[in-house]
Design a protein around this nucleic acid. Structure first.
Lengths: 158, 158
DNA sequence: AAGTTAGTTCTGTATTTGGAAAACTAAAAG
DNA sequence: CTTTTAGTTTTCCAAATACAGAACTAACTT
């Protein structure tokens, strides 16, 4: 095992890879996906550049660019320790809930588009237009109920 | 204007392109995305292979493969007309609501993974584990409330 | 001031993706 | 039965992606 590499159990490696695949499917690139997955499954929650790099066998450049991306998109954060020049990266836990709300609010983008499409449709395609209207109504309903749902969750939780 | 191409207003073209971009961002390839968008914005709701092909200036192969994909994934359907060998493709309107529910249920896949990650974490990373548990609780809550939401929508609608 | 550490940036390349062109096929029409 | 229509399948190529390697930099150490 090389200088910085941390050790993972078989199970951790399996979870890491499964999670990385899910993340890639949702549009995140392979290297950032693996890093994010690693920060979820490793026993240590805070890892250095070189621990990440060596554990995942990716190059310095890939590691550097992936970490920048994850920091920019607020998926991870880092701490420093006095008398230690390294940064210790960890997943930003709040980003999970944020991701949820983000997904909900991205609904309203699609909804607006549907409304604009509806606005310029010929009135003769009656059924099509009605269906489109139903969909936008549903989306409006969802994004209105979304935050209420969150509140309902908060209160039933404790 | 070539043989089969249908004409679109400036506004329709703008909406088509905007919608296609949204679809691409959600992981659908460019050609299928444009076809799906076209079927939303065009005055005619049912278009033939060649109308699609020429209006979007894509090759036969791209058109054929994109249509197969959209049929397989139930995003579109087609009708035939007697005494006419062509197929008339249109968006499957129900696929919008289905998409909604699908998104909700894909949540449970991630949720399961989080639970498996949680199950093997060392107990010493207390805060991390607690946060992870909160997230899974939230996801469980969401996917339980999802269908109920749909029902609530159905009943308040009429 | 000459390393060393902890990265970043730049350049090149292997792989993957997306789509064109052309050959092919099955059904219907003439 | 040969031609046309309505596609499908196969092959190939261009462009985009994802990453490695190497050069570079800035701060700290000795």
């Amino acid at each position: 095992m090389s200088e910085f590499s941390i050790s993972l159990t078989k199970e951790q490696i399996k979870l890491l890879e499964e999670y990385a695949v899910l993340l890639e499917q949702s549009g995140i690139q392979p290297a950032p996906a693996k890093i994010l997955a690693l920060l979820h499954v490793s026993d240590e929650t805070d890892l250095t550049f070189d621990q990440i790099r060596e554990t995942l066998s990716i190059s310095k450049s890939a590691t550097s660019q992936a970490l920048s991306f994850l920091l920019n998109t607020k998926k991870i954060e880092y701490k420093t320790k006095i008398g230690d020049r390294k940064r210790y990266f960890s997943t930003r836990v709040m980003s999970w809930q944020e991701g949820m709300l983000e997904a909900l609010s991205s609904l309203s983008g699609i909804c607006d588009l549907y409304k604009r499409i509806l606005a310029q449709r010929p009135s003769r395609t009656k059924e099509f237009n009605k269906n489109l209207k139903d969909v936008t109504a549903f989306m409006d309903f969802m994004s209105k109920q979304g935050p209420a749902l969150l509140q309902a969750f908060e209160s039933q939780r404790k």
